[in-house]
Design a protein around this nucleic acid. Structure first.
Length: 1012
RNA sequence: GGGCGGUUAGCUCAGUUGGUAGAGCAACUCGUUUACACCGAGUGGGUCGGGGGUUCGAGUCCCUCACCGCCCACCA
């Protein structure tokens, strides 16, 4: 074999061999009926491998390889997510960068073609990167959440789209999906609704303006403000109500002003009307002052403007109080260019409600948005509104030293320090919603959207985790899951995008709409295909009505209807044309079907039968809500079965300072660079070693380097084995006579148990540590060193040791393979003729029964003797190369036997002349207490008496402290009475040992003293 | 405002049902013994954030305080 491991070359070659031999195919290496199926969290098709992927997929791969080697019928299902917004954004940018026509110019169909083209060119990046990491997915089954969608090109067949549509229709038919006009989070950049989860609330610096809303007709009232004790602090006559707002541009859409019912300040004017102080005076709207529990009397002025169409709180108030909601903005967040005249009907209703005659409803002629603001961006409009109100003198004024204004720079001019009246504009940090992708401020917007009754679906999803059908680990993440599920809101699933699964709903006019004038009503039909739509439409309109479909473009054309007059003078419908909903589904709606969608549902495929429900889902906590919760809800709703046996939730990879890796901070570590530099195995081992359950991991390159070194160590140990003919181990546990060989067999068995226990409980770090210490500290540091003399030409133990070492090394390769697949596969091939590749090697099953406790005890004895001598030698400053003489005094038969059996090893590793036995310590000896004997090194003249005395003193002090502690504990009657017997016995034993050692040390000290 | 997590050796972190603390890296000393300097041998270093409690016994359980971090949340 080569002198060093060439990771780059080796990884590529091995990866190819795995692929070519179908090593990762579902069921490969199957030797039992149990299945093990893992669904990859599908990366975005736009994605490239980042640390989160590397971590997530390393953990999955460890589990998958481990199970595959153990003979499970294993499937790791790979694939990608079409990622609606992200992908559409990427392609739009690309078109713009290339100077090509944009999305709208292209039109829907042509644009989608561009997206598919892009997917073909760039969509496979991450798959290749995952392969470099060593991910053993069944790549031939690679899935895509848009496969089989209309317009999908060759090579993108599949039934994922059918599954998505079928689920939509089924849930619709069950009444679990509905259309509604609700306030949703609107992203003005992408011009689409988004779900609550796609909004991130951030603190930003903002302002709160205070404006006067004049009372209608110049009415006045006595405004009285009291302090906590009821003393009047302010009494004045006002002809206005003061409103505090952070969003003046929405004033134009106010439907009311609300005050708390118990707020005495405003009691005199509740029920009266006030005027929105924006726009041309002759066109200003009057709105009622109402009461609602929502306003907090202690905040702002205690009076809140209610803008139902642009604020979630206000929307709730508006619903309660039957207050009209006026949508002020276009989909891009600009003030409505059409001014948005609201209907006469609405105006009349409002007038009547406000206690006026319908004829007084002059507002029917008025537009919501005055000419001056139309088309203005909402933030520009804010400035304009503030400026206009202030110019008109309707801003609430305060003195310039009002603490609410915050700290202001000191003015130089002494005269200006006198408090002067200024508009009250408080500087505040406010929480503002941003689109997680677009990074623009989200606008609550009143629109028609499709919703899933998530609260209904959540019931089963909660129950499935409660009753243990699905186990979420660590447990605290189950609590997070429950908490969210139990407070779930309706899920808005429609998106005003093009890239995605189009909503299978068609609209048409109501059948009586030809009898009415004006705006036609609308009905809709939900079906998986046009044939079914036609059937439904005929059932509604009549069998002889001709049903046709309008072709899209951008979408949104009016559906239409044809009719003929009948003899009796009524009209008969002869034809209708239906138009399909232009919107697509939230990406998470389709990825929520990932488990069954990839297994071929709704067909009853063999994969569905074999692998569903799946085994373990490994995912980051950041997508518990987005993805895990949705998969639970949807799979349960569709199949009645919980999709996973276990959900293992892991933490995030952060940089060495604990910060989230982000492009803007510039602290992103590219896993591919690390793989180039240190090899995939090193990166993987690092991930596993740091994967303590539930904790964030801070990644440092140093750590990766360390585990690269670990791989090198394994490589070199293998070279040693090869050079000594210790290759081609048997699968069976070999028999051994030499203690050291018996011992390594036991150690290997302990590794197997520790490793498997750890992995069974998802303690990846414990598994990694077990491998590390066994291979480095046990196998390399001790076993290899011990066996050097045994492997010498002509040594009687040579043959046995070769066999045992070959076996023990093989076991290391096998057990390290899930974590470090490449280097172990390379070594496996280099070290012998193998029937199978390591990826399919048999996982060991031996346990403690192959260990020899006597051999273990003996080797511990040998090791502590050697360590004692080495330590002493080093502390005494003795030359490392000088051979020392050693005599054992007072040796028990056991100790003598142990020494004889391991004489060569001990003498070699401790660099000793042949060890002798003696009745008493030779003159001038330094002694070392060991079990069953004292090791005496005659060091007269060689040793620094002072240093040795100090050493012994220190060792004695340590022992004395221990003895003190143990003694007081053992004389404590409560301890003796209440502690379990084995604990007491153990403490007693410890005390005896400590006393024994101390006595020996004291003798040694006396002898050393006599040396000086 | 709610909820969760963290605080253990200089640094990064383990510590599974309570039985007197571990690893890696870093530091220091020594080392050209035929697998490996991406190495070997050895050494130093911790009142387990503060305080209180339960217990024979607490890093580990309970209460409390402090600081750091994350998630969720509608105070205009």
């Amino acid at each position: 074999m080569d002198k060093t491991f060439n990771a780059t070359a080796s990884e590529a070659a091995i990866s190819t061999r795995w692929q070519e031999t179908g090593a990762f195919r579902a069921g490969a290496n199957k030797s039992r009926d149990e299945t093990f199926c893992v669904m990859i969290p599908p990366p975005n098709v736009t994605g490239s491998l980042h640390m989160g992927h590397a971590f997530n997929n390393t953990l999955q791969d460890i589990l998958v390889r481990w199970h595959r080697m153990r003979g499970f019928d294993t499937l790791w299902q790979p694939g990608q997510d079409h990622a609606g917004i992200a992908t559409q954004m990427v392609v739009e940018r690309k078109l713009a960068a290339e100077g090509q026509p944009g999305r709208r110019e292209l039109g829907r169909e042509a644009f989608l073609e561009k997206v598919w083209e892009w997917k073909k060119e760039s969509g496979g990046t991450i798959i290749e990167q995952l392969k470099r990491l060593g991910a053993s997915c069944d790549w031939e089954r690679n899935a895509f959440t848009m496969s089989g969608a209309p317009g999908a090109p060759e090579g993108e067949e599949g039934n994922f789209h059918d599954a998505v549509i079928k689920v939509f229709v089924d849930l619709y038919n069950k009444g679990l999906i509905y259309r509604g006009k609700r306030l949703v989070n609107w992203d003005p950049h992408f011009e689409t609704a988004i779900s609550d989860l796609e909004v991130e609330n951030l603190e930003v610096e903002g302002h709160m303006w205070h404006f006067k809303y004049p009372l209608a007709g110049g009415a006045t009232y006595e405004y009285v403000e009291k302090d906590e004790d009821g003393n009047v602090v302010l009494r004045e006559t006002r002809d206005y109500i003061s409103i505090a707002t952070t969003r003046p541009e929405t004033m134009l859409g106010d439907g009311a002003v609300a005050v708390h019912p118990d707020d005495e300040r405003y009691a005199p004017i509740v029920g009266k009307l006030c005027e929105i102080p924006v726009g041309p005076k002759e066109h200003r709207r009057l709105i009622p002052i109402i009461t609602d529990e929502y306003p907090d009397p202690d905040f702002g002025s205690g009076a809140v403007k209610i803008t139902g169409a642009h604020d979630f709180n206000d929307y709730a108030v508006a619903k309660r109080g039957n207050i009209p909601c006026y949508r002020l903005m276009d989909t891009n967040g600009a003030m409505r260019a059409d001014g948005a005249a609201y209907s006469e009907e609405a105006a009349k209703a409002a007038a009547i409600r406000d206690g006026r005659e319908a004829s007084e409803a002059k507002i029917d002629a008025i537009n919501l948005v005055p000419e001056a603001y139309r088309g203005m961006d909402r933030f520009e409009a804010r400035k304009a509104v503030v400026a206009d109100i202030t110019a008109e003198g309707l801003a609430v004024m305060t003195l310039s030293d009002d603490p609410r204004l915050g700290k202001r720079p000191k003015k130089k001019d002494a005269e200006e320090e006198v408090a002067t009246p200024v508009p009250l504009v408080e500087a505040k940090t406010i929480m503002q919603p941003f689109g997680d992708r677009s990074k623009v401020v989200i606008e609550p917007m009143l629109t028609d959207q499709w919703f899933v009754k998530a609260d209904v679906l959540a019931e089963e999803a909660i129950a499935a985790v409660e009753d243990g059908r699905t186990k979420i680990l660590p447990e605290r993440d189950a609590r997070v899951y429950f908490n969210w599920m139990r407070n779930i809101e309706p899920w808005c699933i429609s998106r005003q995008l093009w890239w995605g699964h189009r909503i299978p709903v068609w609209y048409g006019p109501t059948k009586d709409s030809h009898e009415k004038e004006g705006v036609a009503g609308s009905v809709h039909f939900c079906a998986a295909n046009e044939a079914d739509v036609i059937e439904q439409a005929k059932a509604y309109y009549g069998d002889d009505v001709e049903v046709s479909f309008l072709t899209d473009g951008v979408g949104g054309q009016m559906s239409g209807m044809g009719s003929t007059s009948q003899a009796d003078g009524t009209l008969k419908i002869t034809s209708v044309s239906l138009s399909r909903d232009p919107d697509v589904l939230d990406t998470w709606f389709s990825s929520g079907l990932w488990p069954i969608g990839t297994l071929g549902w709704p067909e009853d495929t063999s994969e569905m039968q074999r692998f569903f429900p799946t085994s373990t889902l490994v995912t980051g906590f950041d997508i518990i809500f987005f993805w895990v919760a949705r998969m639970m809800m949807m799979q349960l709703a569709v199949t009645g079965q919980a999709p996973f046996d276990t959900v293992y939730v892991h933490a995030l990879v952060r940089d060495e300072k604990g910060r989230k890796m982000s492009k803007s901070i510039g602290n992103v570590i590219d896993p591919l660079n690390l793989i180039d530099k240190y090899g995939a195995d090193a990166v993987r081992f690092t991930m596993a070693a740091m994967a303590a359950m539930g904790r964030d991991l801070k990644l440092s390159e140093k750590r990766v380097e360390g585990y690269r070194n670990f791989g090198t160590k394994l490589w070199n140990a293998s070279r040693f084995a090869e050079m000594n003919g210790a290759v081609g181990g048997t699968a069976e546990v070999p028999t051994a006579t030499a203690t050291v060989n018996k011992w390594i067999i036991g150690e290997t068995a302990r590794l197997r148990e520790a490793h498997d226990d750890a992995l069974a409980q998802y303690r990846f770090n414990d598994a990694a540590v077990a491998l590390y210490t066994h291979i480095w500290n046990v196998f390399c540091d001790w076993y290899v060193e011990f066996t050097k003399p045994l492997l010498a030409e002509g040594a009687p133990e040579r043959e046995e040791t070769q066999k045992v070492m070959a076996w023990a090394l093989d076991q290391c390769l096998v057990m390290a393979h899930p974590v470090m697949p490449f280097i172990t596969e390379q070594l496996w091939g280099d070290l012998g003729e193998r029937a199978k590749m390591l990826v399919h090697a048999d996982w060991p099953e031996f346990g403690a029964e192959v260990a020899d406790p006597a051999a273990d005890a003996e080797m511990s004895w040998v090791i502590s003797l050697i360590e004692g001598i080495r330590s002493l030698r080093s502390e005494m400053g003795l030359s490392p190369s000088a051979k020392l003489t050693l005599a054992l005094t007072g040796a028990s038969e056991e100790a003598k036997a142990r020494l004889e059996r391991n004489r060569v090893l001990i003498e070699r590793l401790a660099r000793l002349e042949p060890v002798e036995f003696a009745d008493s310590a030779p003159e001038g000896s330094v002694t070392l207490p060991i079990e069953g004997a004292e090791a005496c090194l005659p060091l007269k003249g060689l040793v620094d008496v002072a240093a040795e005395s100090a050493r012994l003193k220190k060792a004695s002090a340590k022992l004395e402290k221990e003895i003190g502690g143990l003694t007081s504990k053992l004389s404590n009657e409560k301890f003796l009475a209440k502690a379990p017997e084995d604990v007491v016995a153990e403490q007693r034993e410890r005390l005896e040992t400590a006393k024994d050692e101390l006595a020996k040390l004291q003798q040694a000290a006396a002898r050393v003293a006599s040396l000086g």
